[in-house]
Design a protein around this nucleic acid. Structure first.
Length: 288
DNA sequence: CACTTGACCTGTCCGC
DNA sequence: TGCGGACAGGTCAAGT
């Protein structure tokens, strides 16, 4: 899915558009895409959106009813707001008027002012889940998920201790492990490893402190840069108003196999690590 | 434990 | 053009 920068971009966009709106109705086209539907009648209809937060790759849309909609987009989920009736002609979501819902729409939420929020998800892996706000941080995922990498408290010392919980594992799987740290996925794992010149199959115990320091620095750099660019839009991801992010243009190795490494000119290759397509510069990122 | 594979789904792309 | 297989930004469960 959407990794941390994409979900964060979505959080910002949605906050601008839907905070304060009142939920009028909901259409659920795919039952599995909306968990805990039994709470809809009493805690969904008529409530207002009060805040939108993010933890790891999960969005928390808080309602005045004391309930929260959690949203996980997984690989292909989108939350798209169509609000031309509110913003008038020329709003970015204009181009989507009349195009949604489409065959990938799993849930449609209509607000009392006539605007709509669409949850589209080609592969149906993502979900919305309605539960009491006080229970959000008690669910299994929230309890076990690792720290936020962009938090000021996420220092070298913390990062090192977190990754060294898995000393014998290759660094790429560890970066993808959400219980070690939150929010990194396949794109930013590859980008950060290239930035710090670490081969993705390097075992954690073989990485020096100096290198761990560089890796942390690059993780923060790359996540912040991507948020600034509105996230990556390789395939399915779009922002809250349907626009694409531009980070992909700044990717240095991800899906750039056969292109030259921007640092040394060597040809970028693609491998399979941790069961995922993995892109490296074989000259910059050597194993040992 | 660490690691792999399969499952969940749909769509696209590539080679024959 | 059609068909089969591989692959796609994520996470879980089960198997080795």
């Amino acid at each position: 899915m959407p990794e941390l920068p994409e979900v964060e971009t979505l959080r910002t966009g949605l906050s601008e558009y839907i905070i304060g709106l009142k939920i009028k109705s909901v259409n659920i086209y795919n039952q599995k895409s909306f968990i805990n539907q039994e709470a809809i009648n009493d805690h969904f209809y008529g409530s207002e959106i009060t805040a939108i937060k993010r933890r790891a790759k999960v969005l928390k849309i808080e309602l005045s009813s004391g309930y929260t909609i959690l949203a996980h987009l997984k690989m292909t989920g989108q939350l798209v707001y169509v609000g031309s009736k509110v913003f008038g002609a020329g709003h970015p979501s204009d181009s989507l008027m009349g195009k949604l819902p489409d065959r990938s729409t799993r849930v449609q939420i209509e607000f009392s002012n006539g605007s709509k929020l669409f949850f589209n998800d080609q592969r149906k892996f993502g979900w919305l889940r309605l539960l009491p706000t006080v229970e959000v941080d008690e669910i299994e995922f929230m309890k076990k998920v690792g720290p936020e990498p962009l938090d000021d408290k996420f220092t070298f010392k913390v990062f090192k201790a977190r990754i060294q919980r898995r000393l014998g594992s290759n660094i790429k799987s560890v970066l993808l492990d959400q219980t070690v740290l939150a929010g990194i996925g396949n794109i930013y794992a590859d980008e950060a490893l290239w930035g710090s010149k670490i081969h993705p199959e390097t075992r954690v115990k073989d990485i020096s402190d100096a290198r761990i320091k560089l890796l942390l620095k690059d993780i923060k750099y790359i996540l912040n840069l991507s948020i600034e660019k509105g996230g990556s839009s390789n395939r399915n991801y779009v922002q809250a108003d349907g626009k694409k992010g531009s980070f992909t243009e700044f990717a240095r190795v991800f899906r750039r196999e056969k292109f030259p490494c921007p640092r040394c000119g060597e040809v970028i290759i693609k491998l399979r690590v941790a069961g995922r397509g993995t892109h490296i510069c074989p000259a910059c990122q050597k194993l040992n």
